[in-house]
Amino acid sequence: SHLLEAEPEKVYAMPDPALPDDDIKALTTLCDLADRELVLNIGWAKHLPGFSSLRLADQMRLLQGAWMEVLLLRVVFRSLGAQDRLVFAEDYVMDAAQARLAGLPDLHAGVLQLVRKYRAMGLEMEEFVTLKAIALANADSMHIEDAEAVQKLQDCVHEALQDYERARHPGDPRRAGRLIMTLPLLRQTATMAVRSFCSIRQDGRVPMHKLFLELLEANA
């Protein structure tokens, strides 16, 4: 229930109507949306039980390691009810043709693979918020100062997921494990996304806000 309460509000993409409909406009819209969502996601992390009592340096490492996984998981959850489209925001839905125009066909296909996986499992809101917290605590940064405290945070969320599954899906003892086993694909897709946006940044044609740039650089 803590995790459900901590869930951030909706964000709208609000593409600039003055820009021509090309790849630059699509990527500008996505980077701007991501930057605003990142601010919300940092606020979200601070509301996770135990996160704010971690050392500040470790809070930073976890977010620097998992920010894209958290962003993508939110897109994936929003897209569960859409047909082969990614719902970046209610006002910004992208199909395969639009993703190709934006130069992101592989990323689009990769995220859709996650969507299909979770849709087949019937991913629930409670499971989504728990997985997102596990992904954050699972960032696997090499430079965590207090690994024991981070492990404790992860154990706490993991236990919440197990409790939930025991209560809601007692006939499916493998469900919690199957959900956790989707995290490698999430990590892989997030790595692909970070690489794509790093190369977009190097091209220098798309304006990016500072927080988004800062986190891209942390992964470069």
């Binding site: 500040l56 977010l63 620097q64 942390a218």
Partner: peptide
Amino acid sequence: KEKHKILHRLLQNST
């Protein structure tokens, strides 16, 4: 740390 000043600031804000 200087490189990550926005993240640092957002984490330190009390909201």
